[in-house]
Design a protein around this nucleic acid. Structure first.
Length: 555
RNA sequence: GCGCGUGUAGCUCAGCUGGAUAGAGCGUCGGCUUGCGGAGCCGAAGGUCGUAGGUUCGAAUCCUGUCACGCGUACCA
């Protein structure tokens, strides 16, 4: 429908003025119409005429050409042409489905990326929620989406934790791990990480020990050591970490197809970087292997350190190679904190030198940080952090105290929506109380709107009689519903789920206004109105599900 | 220093491939009220869109300078 009208306008412009115009139909304020174009304003300059005059000529021809598709074509402001569709055309427009931009494509979506041995903090919750939503969008657009997770199970942070663990156990005594209660595994390890960091920061002796431990960690893999006391401690704690991750993802409804632990990508990265070192992509410098990003206006980074160990850079190179081996992706998405922006640009630039098809099919998306209202910083090294579960628990408490009951789905919806409704990129301020507010633009509001609509639908059978002769409120609702596919396309193309939140909230508002004045059950218009309510409920449900939020029929 | 990002109402944010009176929510003030689920609806107050220029018929949106904050800038991730 949209394309049809755009083509019609372009045709009229060509016919009247002999000029090719790139017509861009926009959705104006409802008071102006369903579609608007500034074609006349563009043309006026080219043909040296008054914009309004040009607009009037176009409007006249357009109305004749579009016939029964339009109710009226009007001119407003400096020369905008506003088009109001006929009811039947609006009904047709509302049938539009989102684009299948990724139809049949193999897509790898990497996000969340927690590090083994470390605690999951509010940022992990945020990035998981956003990653889920974006992955849902890609899937909705026809992609075969593989959700994967990358995380450090080797490297300095693990060595630091192992240092403190060994100290706590009084040496390499794996049997002592049994003394730690099952439900305290994760907390115990994150406490060790904080301790280890403190010791590491102000003691050179500890630094040396940690460096040594780090080497031993890599040897566990190269030697396939599962039996030495040191190995037993490592593997036990590592499993505790992954169990802890699994439990968390289950709680928030995230599902990953695969974990890529760094221990798995490190050897691939190391081999690849060494191979490309020989071909001149990477260089040796001060005993380390680097990529000279400055040649490309970027900065230089170390891929293999002077100990011969792969850094995160090399592990990421290995990861991309591994993903390619596993999926032969058409598109690969990586979602991280924006602190990694420049870093990833360098890594991808280096890969571009020897595997351009992989680098070019990879998109690095970044988001801001979750900050606590009041400006408290979060650092897992210092331990003064808000854990991911704290965010959920606090939300649960607030919900319970305001509503007087528990509702797991509403709480999860509230937190996810609070994170998703903001545009990706900038930091987000998380206020444990306000962001979970149940009024206004919130998850529970939209969920409730859905439950309310479903409740109406249970009271009478919805038929399929023709939707026509729309009243004011009915038309506003259908008009808003007709925007849905555009919104999904935009969110998908821009990787910006917040567009969906904005839309669903606006839609619910339009419905509430309609509902305030129009009776559904028992009215002469019941048949038509029930269908509108049904479509409305379906759009809410579909939109929420793309956001990873449930849409219960009752709340 | 250089690079990237962000600065819109008291607070939290939409709007940013230039367009019509800059929009929401929260908060404040005032109405509706036993409703087909009021977690709602209607209204009011509240903004030099950080700042100074530039481009344009038209700038919150594009360009340049500048200020503020955040992040990054070789062996952490």
């Amino acid at each position: 429908m949209k394309e049809y009208i755009e083509a019609a306008i372009a045709g009229v412009c060509k016919e009247l003025f002999g000029v090719d115009v790139r017509v861009d139909l926009t959705r104006p304020d409802e008071q102006f119409g369903d579609f608007a174009t500034n074609a006349a304003l563009q043309l006026a300059k080219q043909v040296n005429k008054n914009p309004r005059e040009v607009a009037e000529q176009i409007a006249d021809h357009l109305k004749a050409q579009l016939g029964d598709k339009v109710a009226e074509v009007t001119i407003a402001g400096p020369g905008f042409i506003n088009i109001k569709l006929s009811d039947s055309a609006l009904v047709e427009l509302a049938e539009t489905k989102p684009d299948k931009k990724y139809d049949g494509k193999q897509v790898v979506s990497e996000y969340s990326d927690p590090s083994a041995f470390k605690v999951l903090h509010a940022g992990h919750l945020y990035t998981s929620v956003v990653g889920d939503a974006i992955s849902n969008l890609l899937e909705n657009a026809g992609g075969k989406v593989h959700r994967v997770n990358f995380g450090g199970d080797v490297g300095r942070h693990v060595a630091i934790t192992m240092y403190a663990i060994l100290r706590d156990l009084g040496g390499e005594h794996p049997e002592k791990l049994a003394e730690i209660p099952d439900d305290q595994h994760a907390d115990w390890m994150s406490a060790r990480y904080v301790e280890g960091n403190t010791a590491f920061e102000d003691d050179d002796q500890v630094k040396a020990e940690v460096t040594e431990l780090n080497k031993r960690l890599y040897h566990l893999f190269t030697d396939n050591d599962h039996d030495s006391p040191f190995a037993q401690i490592y593997w036990t704690c590592r499993k505790w970490s992954y169990d802890y991750f699994d439990a968390f993802y289950a709680r928030i409804g995230s599902h990953f197809e695969k974990y890529y632990p760094e221990s798995e990508t490190a050897p691939i990265g190391l081999a690849t970087v060494k191979e490309q070192l020989a071909k001149g992509v990477y260089q040796e410098s001060d005993g380390a292997v680097i990529f000279d990003g400055e040649k490309y206006g970027l900065h230089t980074r170390v891929f293999i350190n002077s100990q011969g160990l792969p850094t995160y850079e090399a592990k990421d190179v290995g990861l991309i190679m591994k993903k390619w081996d596993d999926y032969h992706f058409d598109f690969s998405l990586i979602l991280t904190d924006n602190a990694q922006g420049d870093y990833m640009t360098v890594v991808l630039k280096s890969i571009e030198q020897f595997a351009p098809e992989l680098a070019n099919a990879t998109k690095h998306l970044t988001h801001g940080r979750v900050k606590l209202a009041g400006g408290v910083k979060m650092s897992s090294r210092k331990g003064n952090i808000v854990r991911a579960v704290d965010v959920l628990d606090i939300a649960e408490e607030v919900y319970k105290s305001t509503m007087g009951r528990d509702d797991e789905q509403a709480v999860l919806g509230a937190v996810k929506y609070a994170f998703l409704k903001q545009r990706l990129g900038a930091d987000i301020i998380y206020d444990p109380k306000e962001s979970v507010s149940l009024e206004g633009n919130s998850g529970p509001y939209v969920q409730y709107a859905h439950a309310r609509a479903r409740s109406i639908l249970t009271k009478a059978e919805t038929g399929d009689s023709k939707i026509e002769n729309l009243g004011e409120g009915e038309r506003s609702l259908l008009r808003k519903l007709s925007e849905y596919s555009d919104v999904i396309d935009k969110a998908t193309n821009e990787f910006m789920p917040h567009h969906i939140c904005t839309y669903l909230y606006e839609l619910a508002q339009v419905f509430n206004r309609f509902y305030e004045k129009n009776r559904v059950i028992g009215d002469d218009r019941q048949a038509v109105r029930l269908q509108l309510v049904s479509r409305y409920a379906d759009v809410l449900k579909n939109g929420l599900s793309l956001l990873g939020i449930s849409a219960p029929d009752k709340m």
